[in-house]
Simulated assay, not measured.
Amino acid sequence: MENQKNNSSLKAIIIVLSILLVGSLIFMYKMSTDTKEVQTKLEKTLTEKQQLEADLKEKIASYDAAIADNTSIKGELEAERAKVVDLLSQVQKTKDDNKAALSRFKEDYRKLKREHDALLAENNKLKEENATLTTQRDSTMTALGESKKYNDTLVNQNENLSKTVEKAQKLQILNVHTQPYKERSSGKLIQTDKASRVDKVRISFTIAANEVAPAGNRTYYVQIIDPKNNVIGEKATEVFGDQTLTYSFITNAIFQNKTITVDELVAGKDFAKGLYTVNIFDKGVNVANTTFTLR
Rank of each mutant, 00 (worst) to 15 (best):
L17F: 12
N229Y: 12
E166P: 02
T244K: 13
D96H: 12
D282V: 09
I13N: 01
P227W: 11
Q179W: 06
A208C: 00
T206W: 00
E128Q: 13
N160P: 04
Q256M: 03
Q256A: 07
Y247S: 05
L25T: 02
T164H: 03
L275P: 07
K5R: 03
E264W: 01
F292L: 06
E183V: 13
A215W: 00
A79C: 07
K269R: 15
K113P: 03
V222C: 13
K200F: 09
N158K: 12
N289T: 08
K57S: 09
G268S: 05
S103R: 12
L10G: 00
S103C: 09
A101Q: 13
P180W: 10
A61Q: 14
G23H: 05
K57M: 10
N98I: 07
Q50E: 09
V176N: 00
Y63R: 02
E211T: 03
G145C: 02
A82E: 15
S32H: 06
N289P: 06
V231G: 10
I26P: 01
A168F: 00
A65C: 04
K11V: 03
A12N: 12
T192V: 10
K83F: 10
D34Y: 07
K200I: 12
A168D: 02
A12K: 05
K5C: 01
N3H: 08
I26N: 08
Y150T: 15
R114Q: 13
